[in-house]
Design a protein around this nucleic acid. Sequence first.
DNA 1: AGAATGAATAATCAAGTAAATATTCACAAA
DNA 2: TTTGTGAATATTTACTTGATTATTCATTCT
Lengths: 195, 195
Amino acid sequence: MGKNEETRELIIDSARNRFLQYGFNKTTMAEIAKDCGMSASNLYRFFKDKNDILVEMTERCFRDTENCLREILRRPGMSAAERIKALVLEKLHINYDMIANEPKFNEIVMYITSERSDIVCRHKDALISSIAEAVAEGNRNGELEAPDIVKTADMISKATIMFGHPMLMNGYSLQELEDSATEIIETLVQGLRRR
Amino acid sequence: MGKNEETRELIIDSARNRFLQYGFNKTTMAEIAKDCGMSASNLYRFFKDKNDILVEMTERCFRDTENCLREILRRPGMSAAERIKALVLEKLHINYDMIANEPKFNEIVMYITSERSDIVCRHKDALISSIAEAVAEGNRNGELEAPDIVKTADMISKATIMFGHPMLMNGYSLQELEDSATEIIETLVQGLRRR
DNA sequence: AGAATGAATAATCAAGTAAATATTCACAAA
DNA sequence: TTTGTGAATATTTACTTGATTATTCATTCT
């Protein structure tokens, strides 16, 4: 890995800790720089501005999630139903962990959602792609009958939207969320089954 | 109708126009009073405070929606599937109209959601009750097989949550929303069918 | 050259004050 | 007795201005 890329990672990690713990506005460039052992002005050699650090942090976070989901697609011996459920539950767990452990997660999500909906959309599309792969697999092995794969995947993502939005998860225990997600997916898959 | 109740309605209607057009904070008690042809201090003879006007306005709005839904339950000659779809689409249309025609609807919803989630919860429960009635009907006539009626209704409401949240409807056309809602409900109902 | 810095400038935030608004109250009209 | 009002008070908002922070830049270091 290039030295330059290493420094960028160090900065993103330092910023991430501060942003999620204290919030974006309450974190100063000087603090991030101090955590990295450099001056504030030097941060600008690696990132355009403070917002840019947040954006790249978010994209990295989304990329990690997407990799998790792709890993689930590669697991052997799962039915399409099981795979779709695993995808949604994985996203749910990642979100739940963040809500539980990172005080300012909600604030950061709201900020990104309102200011950079394009990034959120791209992530949502990646999610739909993963679900689509599982649906396609279900079609191939005769478990499902979904003529329009992407439309079906999009439908599934919309029906499970509350497990990807921290705001909507508020007030439910992890158990309740898992149960609800499971019931929705099992009913949907049952409705998509080849008869 | 009592004179007192008539005045309360006049005040709520005047406030409603202002709140939805200019927002809660940008509307002054003096303006509401002027629209009603009375002094600001007289408003307090009918409502505890400004917040109270908003709350009663919201409850009235929710009650109207709930009456619409109950009316759908009384329509003759519909299958359970059709009735559930009609319920969700009705709520979707009401929300869509508000978003399209009332500039500050979103702001008001956010405010009520954060400050008085109890009211929103009660409305959500009423919605689930209506869906539950349709599910029960489906069970009776053999169209559906849902052992736990309320749990099933709750599941349906969670899977269609995006059509009840203005925030999540942002960026979709009415047609797209209707299509998505229809597809989700038809798939769910198919999954609940007696086999 | 590229990496890094402290000082300079620009933008944003925060404390304090003035103005606007919400709410109360003593009293009048119906 | 209920509806109503204008004046008085309490609260909130808007606006200054001083302080903090983001960003740029000229310069040093390697």
